[in-house]
Structures are given as C-alpha cells and as structure tokens.
Design a protein around this nucleic acid. Structure first.
Lengths: 185, 185
DNA sequence: TAAAGCATGTAAGAGGTTACATGATTGG
DNA sequence: CCAATCATGTAACCTCTTACATGCTTTA
C-alpha cells in the first residue's frame, strides 16, 4: 500500500518526505506516521526504486524522485492481481487514484475484476444476513444485524459506483469528456 | 480489534479457536489467519482475560470462555474513546456489533461521537475535493477525483446510516420494536 | 485407505505505531 | 527571542502474514 502510494506520488513529481506525508493524507486513504514513512523511503531507496537528492539550500531536505526501475516496479504493482492484500477495497481505490499512469488498455479489465469482487462481497453479505437473521431476531440483537445491513448497503453502493466508472471508461477511454465518443470515419 | 472481537464472541458463548475463526469471518469485518488468532488467544489467556478447557473427547480442542476480568476489560474496550486506532470506521462497526452487551445508557453517546467523526470526515473529503478539483481538471485526471468523490459519497451514506441508528436508539432504547415508545404514566 | 477437513501451533519476516531525539527556519 | 512548524531520523514494541509442522477424524 505505502510503497505504491509513494511511487505514485513521485510519478506526479519529486517530493521530500515531510511533503509526502501531507500528499499521502490528501489522497484520503490514511495518515501515515513519520516512523513508518521514513523507513519506507529508505527501503525504496536501497532497492533503487527511488533516489534522493539533498537540497542545496540550508533546509536539509531529501528530495526523492522515482527511478526507471521504480517506474517498472510501479507498473507491476498497478497491473498485479494483488490477492495478497486482504484489504481489497483500499488497495483498489489506491490503484485507481493512479490510473492515469496505467496503460489505458489495462484499465477496463481491472475495473471489471474489481466489479466481480464487489459482487462476491455483496453476495457474502447477503448470505451472512440470511444466516444471522433468525438467530439475531430471536435474541433481540438488532445491532449485529445493523452492521451486516450496512455492509450490504455499502457493497451495493460500491457496485453502482464501479458501474459508473466502467461506463465512463467505455465511453471515454482516453479521458475525453463523456458524449464526445471517438468517431469512426 | 482482534481482542475485542474475540472477547465479544466469547460473550456469546464458549468457543474453540478453529470455530472462532469462522465466527470472526461471519462478523463480516476481516478474515483473520490462524497465525494471528492462536497467538492472540494465548496472549488473552496469559492475561487471564479468557480461560481454556481442553475438551475431554478425542478431538484436542481448547474451548475458551471469557473470565470475569475479561468481561471487565471487554467493557473498558467497548466504552473507550479509542482514538488509538486510526481505523475509526472498522473499529466503530465492530463495537456496534457487540452493543447488546454494552450498558444501554452508554450507547447513544457513542453513536453521537461517531456521528461527529463522520461529519468531520465528510468535511475533510469536501475540502480535499475543492483543493484537487482545479488541479485535476487541468491535468485531465478524472480518476483521483473519482476516488475522492467516492469517499465523500461514502461519508454521506454513513452519516445517513448513523442517523437512522440514533433515531432507532432514541425511540427504542431497550430494543423494543420502534413505535412502542416508553410511556410516561 | 486415501483425501479432505478439523484442530492447534511455531518461526521468520515484514511493516506499522508511538515515543523520543535533534536541529533549522519562520512568524509574531 | 520564543514558539510553532519544518524536517529527518531511530528504537522499542506489537501484531499481522505466510509458510511450515503435526496429527486426528470423517467421508468417499
């Protein structure tokens, strides 16, 4: 997660650690601590995925930029199926945030794979609700039910959302505004 | 997270590890691995928050039940403000799943505190959207915008949800079905 | 009887958090 | 000039994951 986010932000441009922390928070996923960010930057640097240049002015800032190897690795992460991370939701949204850097041909398949995952999640939620409904009602436990219903609603909202994204991707694969579909001469 | 979930499930009744993994998954939050669950059980046992009884039949199952100390600790976790966990969302929903075991007087305040957090999250999302909108449009980056818009929508859906919960809690504090409001003689 | 599932556990390694430590620069 | 913020980093600790190891029970 953190690696992908850092590499993606460094594709936007060169940044130093302190700045990256703010940009990371602005992405809206989580607020990483320095105790996690700086070691991560060192790891990436040691693997030659990013390189640092200490700023010449008085501020001892280490400005990082992504290397060619880092770029390759970034592409790998963006394309990967990533069953590794259990947190599919966050991990998908993070990748989506950097979709502009992904080969346009590869975007739709990823969206559709994610759509499939969401449908599975929704169905799992439905099954759980079914299993819990009688048991919970008998015990007068509305709270556990409320949590499951929230999960179902969220899955359904996510499904609607991803369908919008897929629609937009189909009608405007290269980022043209919708309605201006590519014409065939 | 895991501690609270295990203690809460053991309030439902005694269970062994293998079973807890399934119950944990059925709660709908995450699927914990055995490599994480068994050590967690040992930790809880060492702290005398749970106790194990090896089943007498041939299956070498360790059936855990919650102790009185465990119960106290569980109550502490349920009541705590918990600014410690960055993941407010998951952590709140997990607590909610065990609300039936929480003193009814303490429920509304927790719901209202969570409501406040969601409003803050929604406003943060709005600010992020504002900050990113021009920048993203100029670069033709609709994806980063889509992620933020999704975050905003989710926050708004969560707000509507928690308002429903608060309403239900106000009209039926003890779990009576809504409409049967307590009367004043 | 072999395979699938039940059941518990350990070890290595990765990565995250908080707290601590340090020092420069900017603004009131 | 003092406080706040910028800026980088380390250390101790905790927990999670994967992979491995073991052995029992049920079912085909």
């Amino acid at each position: 997660m953190l690696e992908l986010a850092v590499l993606g932000l460094l594709r936007d441009g060169a940044h130093h650690g302190y700045e990256l922390k703010r940009l990371l928070a602005d992405l809206g996923f989580w607020s990483v601590s320095f105790g996690s960010l700086y070691p991560a930057l060192r790891r990436l640097e040691r693997r030659d995925l990013i390189e640092a240049q200490v700023s010449s002015d008085k501020r001892r800032r280490k400005v990082y930029r992504i290397t060619d190897e880092g770029d390759d690795y970034f592409q790998d992460l963006m394309r990967s199926d990533d069953t590794s991370t259990a947190d599919d939701d966050r991990s998908f949204r993070l990748r989506l945030a950097f979709f502009e850097y992904l080969d346009p041909d590869r975007r739709l398949p990823i969206l559709e794979r994610r759509r499939h995952q969401i449908i599975e999640e929704r169905d799992r939620m439905k099954r759980r609700l079914g299993r819990n409904r009688e048991r919970a009602k008998a015990r007068g436990d509305r709270y556990r039910l409320a949590v499951l219903e929230h999960g179902l609603r969220r899955a359904e909202a996510d499904l609607a959302w991803i369908d919008e994204l897929i629609m937009a991707e189909r009608t405007a694969p290269d980022g043209f505004s919708p309605g201006v579909a590519p014409e065939m001469p």
